[in-house]
């Protein structure tokens, strides 16, 4: 469990980072190292060079931008969990960040790293999907924005180009939405067997907007569109919630493994969704 040799660079600015990547195209970005370093130790990845992003000031900090929160890619899970603005305007992101791994992992792991790593059982992708968050990415070719929905392609697969780097996440403010994240952790890995993120906005006793996102269940985190549709416009009662929950895995190829078969995961996702929704009432 020792690392093979690799080159290491710590750029001091975004421009420097992008330039360094252009010069060493096989290099990998290093943020918290909580996913990348274990993969290197297990010889699942062997990048010749690492570009450590911890010195890039532009990737840090959480800013209020009117209708949005701007969250620098290097924001640590622990900061996301505790930040008062995030807790107020995008509570779901804090709730999910709180449930990641253990204190050491939360102290090192970053928002950008988690999204770029795209583990199908990671917590943040579900929360950020439910919050309709957007990712800002930069490369030598320039800057672009893409939704988290478009970012996540599959297990450990994203729409980022190899040389592209996540600079920040932009989350539309969800102030006043009722939000919850429920996670059933795997007893060994601590990752989600099922994780359900819910944000609901009600007006006059009716659901105006319902967002339900699920992680751990399929090859990537997804929005439960049919379940959301059941809730939309409804005055919510027990029956409606149960109906919505029953549709949470609709259209998904549910994963099965040694610990939890597809049938069981589906059941768990439904029960967890129903209880999460009930808990918000």
């Amino acid at each position: 469990m020792t690392l093979a040799a690799f080159a290491y660079q710590r750029p001091r600015s975004l421009a420097e980072a992008v330039e360094a990547m252009a010069e060493a195209p096989d290099a990998r970005w290093l943020s918290g190292g909580m996913s990348l370093l274990p993969m290197m130790k297990l010889e699942l990845a062997a990048p010749p060079a690492l570009l450590d992003l911890s010195g890039v000031e532009d990737l840090r900090g959480i800013r209020d931008e009117g209708d949005f929160l701007h969250i620098g890619a290097m924001t640590r899970h622990v900061e996301l969990a505790r930040d008062p603005a995030v807790r107020r305007d995008a509570h779901l992101a804090s709730l999910a960040a709180e449930r990641i791994g253990d204190p050491q992992v939360r102290n090192r792991g970053t928002v950008g790293g988690s999204l770029a790593h795209a583990d199908p059982a990671a917590d943040l992708p579900a929360a950020l999907l439910a919050l309709d968050a957007e990712v800002e990415a930069v490369s030598a070719r320039g800057r672009r924005a893409l939704s988290v929905q478009d970012l996540l392609l599959g297990p450990m697969m994203t729409a980022l180009e190899p040389d592209e780097l996540i600079v920040a996440i932009r989350i539309p403010k969800h102030t006043g939405h009722r939000q919850a994240y429920t996670k059933v952790p795997h007893p060994a890995s601590g990752y989600a067997v099922v994780g359900v993120a819910v944000a609901i906005h009600e007006e006059g006793g009716r659901v105006r907007q319902a967002a339900i996102a699920v992680t751990g269940v399929a090859l990537k985190a997804f929005r439960a569109a049919r379940a959301e549709a059941v809730l939309a416009g409804q005055a919510v009662d027990q029956e409606v919630l149960a109906e919505a929950a029953g549709l949470v895995c609709d259209g998904q190829d549910v994963l099965g493994d040694v610990y939890a078969s597809a049938a069981y995961r589906r059941q768990l996702a439904q029960v967890v969704t129903r209880r999460t929704l009930e808990g918000l009432r």
Binding site: H186, P187, A188, S189, V258, Y259
Partner: peptide, 26 residues
């Protein structure tokens, strides 16, 4: 009672070969 158990597949590969899938009590 609740978590641990080594599992082999038919070919004799240990499928619970790391602490990511073999659940020790916490």
């Amino acid at each position: 009672a609740l978590w641990e158990g080594a599992a082999y597949d038919r070919q004799g590969q240990l499928v619970t070969g790391s602490l990511m899938d073999y659940a020790l009590p916490k």
